[in-house]
Design a protein around this nucleic acid. Structure first.
Lengths: 236, 236
DNA sequence: CCCATGGATCCCATATCGTGGAACATGCGT
DNA sequence: ACGCATGTTCCACGATATGGGATCCATGGG
């Protein structure tokens, strides 16, 4: 009887849960609903064990079956969670990125998504500057005037005049447009279909965010946006 | 030594997983991040056991701690899932409602959410009628012209002329507005803040969807929308 | 129609793994 | 600095998960 224990940094007294949790993760991450057999193969567990574990998860509503004996999908509990707290979840995921950008740039960082009537701000990370930006969370701003709004237009639905420039550079700017003395740059976080699902932006007084400062900050911003894009799709 | 086993329809050979899964569900459903102590109390488990189980869940990324020793939030795996598949999840949750409405009304049912440039259709359930509606999934429609769009305006952001009527009746209609010969009625699915997060609609040829037919179908539609609203928030 | 086929579930003896009380950390409030 | 409240680690015990094989159930082919 083998006890490989090899692949994971396994703690003791949790074999069953560790396994079950792993199965749940696989179901949630899988691009296509797996069957019991596939799961057991991929996880390297006996079918009987897999069946039992999945049964328990199903009883708690964490997993669901397509038919009576069908493939596995995330259960009602997870469906509800996703429908309810999607934007909250995005904000939580992006939080580290916001923090990093705030520290590195010293300016105010925002996470936004496209909404029915304009850009919707989900989260903001401030810095200790006296001349800063007020809290934008919850506020809506027209797409055409904001840097992040332009991202949504350029990478997705609509059109902007600067569209080509924005797409080729990978980020958008808004200088004294939304308000005189207020500037910003924004980079898109892309979804599976290549459209922008959200955007990260750096904003501050035009006095500090000069053209050259923007050039300097752009790579950082794009990098962080790309990181988030990756984190949303792939594993890790 | 107690083995109550009483509260659940417990199957055998899954105590640990059943418990761990229950803990995970509590974390996901909790309006506020619970602490280990709270969890162990609510679940009726010893603190030591709870700690161990949560540890395993954390190792798989299903759960996350605020600080080193802090309160519990959904983990990165779930955050990613929610951010990625939110609308898919909503569609899956609504699916039974769509099916029921389609069967009871004999018309085409749609689930839609408000998007940046109009109403976005997530899912559709058809019936066997010859004169039906084409597939709307993925298509965008201006808010002011569609019944579901009017719901979003009346219960949430914007304004419509019929706003008061819609709010008092609890549903909106669109007769020959989007297209001559096409009519629809729609009821909102409300979020925690009372705004419409999505809408269910019944649409069909004006010839079939007469004023009285609409009066007849409205209660069904409102009822199903209310059910969905409840299912999104509360348990079960 | 009936028998292969492949997959999922059930069964049950075995010993591995989870259990929980108590002791030990850790951090917060005063 | 000293409790107090909250979380973690330890460990002997035995309840509980394990997995090979039998069973069951849908399919589809002969």
């Amino acid at each position: 009887m083998f006890h490989d224990m090899g692949s994971m940094g396994a703690e003791s007294g949790t074999q069953a849960i560790e396994r079950a949790a792993q199965l749940l993760v696989r179901v949630v991450e899988a691009p296509q609903p797996p069957s019991i057999g596939e799961l057991s193969a991929r996880a390297g567990l006996p079918k009987s064990t897999t069946s039992r574990l999945v049964g328990a998860l199903e009883r708690q509503g964490l997993v669901q079956r397509l038919g009576a004996r069908g493939r596995l999908r995330p259960g009602p509990v997870l469906l509800r969670y996703a429908s309810r707290d999607a934007s909250q979840a995005l904000a939580a995921l992006a939080q580290p990125s916001l923090r990093r950008l705030a520290d590195e740039s010293g300016e105010t960082i925002n996470l936004a998504v496209p909404g029915p009537d304009g850009v919707e701000h989900l989260a903001q990370e401030d810095t200790a500057h006296f001349v800063g930006v007020t809290d934008w969370v919850g506020r809506r701003v027209p797409f055409e005037l904001a840097a992040n709004g332009k991202c949504f237009l350029a990478f997705g639905g609509g059109e902007v005049e600067e569209g080509d420039l924005i797409r080729s550079r990978g980020y958008a700017t808004s200088i004294d447009e939304l308000e005189v003395g207020l500037s910003a740059l924004a980079a898109p976080v892309l979804g599976a279909d290549g459209a922008a699902v959200s955007a990260l932006s750096i904003s501050g007084p035009t006095a500090r965010l000069t053209a050259e400062r923007i050039d300097e900050l752009a790579p950082l911003l794009k990098d962080e946006a790309a990181t988030l894009t990756r984190r949303l799709r792939g594993a890790a």
